[in-house]
Computed example of a mutant assay.
Amino acid sequence: MRRRTFGILLILIGCIIIGIAFYIRYMGERKQKELLAEYERVLYEIGQYNIEDNGAASSRDETDAVAVDNNLENNPEEVKSVVENNKAIAILEIPRIELTVAVVQGTEPKDLKYAVGHFENTAMPGESGNFCVAGHRSYTYSEYFNRLDELEKGDTIIAKTEKGTFEYEVYEKMVVEPTEVAVLEPTKEATITLVTCTPIRVATHRLIIKGRLMQ
């Protein structure tokens, strides 16, 4: 009888753990959708984005964009507020791996829960210098860079911001030790560096993808 009770208890604990994992993943996806919808609407309002013509936006649940639109359309001043206070600073798109994700400021665990993060004190998209971004591959909260290893030389990385849309061409892919931070150093030209852990789940090294701004 005790063995049976213990077995049932283990099953219940397992179900609870699985349920919590699914809930965390659901909340992460919901937060990411909110970040994207808000920033897409901001870009649309300032003339940098066309939601109706953008395949990434139309492929997501339209209610996200509609909800933000309802908040802004009757109050233009709120657009300015969202621009100033919205956590997202850019939208990153990688066609090769069908990724569209919001970029937030910072690379602390709290920043990477629902998005990919911009390394502070590195260049912004389109600027001369090294625009550096980190993201998880296999994690409880997010897996936005889980297919980053599929990128090859010549692939395109797109960064959409309030200042415009910038396209980078991948020119290098490498694996380095976690201590090799030279990959984040400034560059004279406008470049992008994507950083994630590798191998998946083991995370002993860092996968680095580098690209140059396309003229």
Rank of each mutant, 00 (worst) to 15 (best):
E167D: 08
R201M: 15
A56C: 10
P76Q: 06
P109Y: 07
R41V: 07
R41K: 12
V104P: 06
P199H: 02
E108A: 15
T179S: 13
A190Y: 02
E45K: 08
E162H: 02
A88F: 06
A134C: 11
V181A: 13
F131Q: 06
E108S: 12
R2P: 04
F145L: 01
A65I: 11
I16Q: 05
D64Q: 12
A56V: 04
T140E: 13
M124L: 14
R201Y: 15
R30P: 05
E34G: 04
R30V: 12
A102C: 08
P186Q: 08
L72T: 10
E177C: 09
I94D: 04
R212W: 00
S59V: 08
L112I: 10
E38K: 08
Y39C: 01
L112A: 02
Y171S: 01
T179D: 11
V103T: 06
K210L: 11
A115V: 07
L148P: 03
A65D: 13
I17P: 05
L36K: 01
M214F: 06
M174N: 14
R60H: 03
E77C: 10
G14K: 04
T187I: 02
T187S: 13
A102E: 03
L213N: 03
K163W: 10
I157Q: 01
V66E: 15
L99N: 04
R3N: 14
Y171P: 00
G28V: 02
G7M: 09
N70L: 15
R212T: 06
V133F: 04
N71R: 13
Y141N: 10
S59Y: 10
Q48A: 03
G106P: 08
F6D: 09
S128M: 09
Y144R: 07
N121I: 11
E38P: 00
N70M: 11
I91L: 09
V202S: 11
I91V: 13
T107N: 03
S81P: 06
L92A: 10
P178F: 05
G47C: 08
N146F: 11
E127F: 03
N75W: 10
L92K: 02
A182Y: 14
I24P: 00
D69Q: 12
R96H: 11
E34T: 12
A190K: 01
R41I: 07
E150W: 07
A90N: 02
Q48P: 00
Y44F: 12
I97W: 07
E169K: 11
Y23C: 03
T107C: 04
D64K: 05
H136A: 08
V170T: 01
I208C: 05
Y39Q: 03
D155H: 02
P199G: 04
T198K: 00
V183L: 06
F131V: 03
L184G: 09
R201W: 14
R212D: 09
